[in-house]
């Protein structure tokens, strides 16, 4: 392609990258070095390395891991079964559809469903288990988070499964492999890329959930995202907020590196 036309394509896109990817990251790193009074200092970083924040970081990672694991567990079979249906594109769209309904509303709906006098408890009473406290527990937090993230996990896996050459599966069967072995040795490894993108798409946002931690977990779970939101919007301590963001970015880079595509 002629170079001046190439420049035409490059320009808007590279401009976008510079303005909206590179600059914001640099800004965040810059801000993290300013304390609440606006003077240059390392105290934000000092603060981050105290038990409070380290505990918070660890806890965030743990929950993000749980959420990713459960999402994968539920999403993979779903994606697999979807590829075997007729009208698979339609079903896929129907999976995405709930994403279009506002998150806050769904959370409020869950508040109603999981409430002490809600439907879930009615059901539990019906089957004889008796009402339990579902809200404000780790269970409900992970459940609702998985609910939100499952579509993000399904999409890449579905794509990877679609790309899979069906003759490979047939070959395995011909050679006498059971369904489980076929899955373990043929299907899963070939769709690993999809699994990796799905994990990327779930794990990192899961680190920074803040609305769900308040609404469903009643702040019994604190993520790095809660702290960032607090600092940026309530305390107006942008410096500290930026510092936490820096660590999230570092975590993100590491994850991307670990699960990256090596095409």
């Amino acid at each position: 392609m002629k170079s001046n036309i190439r420049a035409l394509y490059f320009l808007p896109y590279v401009l976008w990258i510079l303005l909206f990817v590179v600059v914001p990251i640099l800004l965040i790193i810059y801000y993290s070095f300013f304390n609440i009074e606006g003077t240059f200092s390392f105290e934000n970083y000092e603060k981050f390395f105290t038990p409070v924040y380290l505990k918070m970081a660890l806890s965030s990672f743990w929950y993000a891991f749980l959420i990713t694991a459960f999402s994968l567990l539920i999403a993979y079979p779903t994606a697999l079964l979807l590829t075997k249906t007729k009208h698979k594109q339609l079903w896929l769209l129907l999976i995405i559809l709930p994403m279009w309904i506002n998150l806050l509303l769904k959370a409020y709906a869950f508040l109603g469903i999981f409430g002490t006098y809600g439907i879930a408890n009615h059901f539990l009473e019906l089957i004889g288990v008796g009402a339990k406290q579902i809200l404000f527990t780790d269970f409900s937090f992970v459940f609702v988070s998985v609910y939100i993230f499952v579509p993000f996990m399904i999409l890449p896996i579905f794509n990877a499964l679609e790309k899979l050459n069906p003759t490979l599966v047939d070959a395995a069967k011909d050679l006498g492999a059971s369904p489980w072995i076929t899955f373990r040795r043929v299907i899963f490894p070939l769709t690993l890329d999809g699994v990796k993108s799905g994990c990327q798409a779930v794990f990192i946002p899961a680190l920074s959930l803040f609305m769900i931690t308040r609404l469903i977990a009643g702040n019994r779970v604190i993520t790095l995202g809660t702290a960032i939101e607090q600092h940026f919007l309530v305390t107006q301590n942008w410096g500290m907020g930026a510092t936490i963001a820096v660590f999230l970015i570092i975590a993100m880079v590491i994850i991307m590196f670990l699960t990256g595509n090596r095409k």
């Binding site: 609440i36 409070v52 019994r220």
Partner: peptide, 19 residues
């Protein structure tokens, strides 16, 4: 600002203690 920030830090610690 500084004292308010201190209040908020204490509150954050309190929230984490709730675990």
């Amino acid at each position: 600002k500084r004292m308010l920030s201190y209040y908020n830090d204490l509150f954050l610690e309190f929230k984490m203690h709730s675990k």
